[in-house]
Amino acid sequence: MDDLRDLYQSTILDHNKSPRNFGVPADSNRDAEGYNPLCGDELHVYLRVDAAGRIDDIGFEGSGCAISRASASLMTEYVKNQSREEVDRVFDAFHDLVTKAPKEGATPESLGKLAVFSGVREFPMRVKCATLAWHTLRAALDQTDQTAVTE
């Protein structure tokens, strides 16, 4: 039960139930779809990127498990006003958070609220649920027409 509580922390359950930034932001100018072929999670991320390349506004739609939904919701809060470079850095740090044991002595990139996903690394089958939103965000920033997949 303990590792389940680590996985399903109250922040995750809250964002699953009441996702933030759910919907399409006004004047969005980039978007991408994400799909997890293993479990059928579907996600659509919309961005309004300003002239300087910063994420001015962000929203998402779609259906998926609690981990993927909460991850998308928390991501939209986290990356608002960030540049592409900042997003890349957070993407890598988040990926490490959900896949690797923390290195002893190392100071991990501060991920703020995103740290609630640390429990995911005990559940390898659920990593893709947590990272789908991030893959989709990157695809939207790249504005490729291809559906982002977690494979």
Binding site: L7, C39, D41, I67, R126, C129
Partner: peptide, 10 residues
């Protein structure tokens, strides 16, 4: 209240 994947994990 729960998606099938969350159910299966629990």
């Amino acid at each position: 209240c729960a998606h099938p994947h969350d159910i299966a994990t629990i």
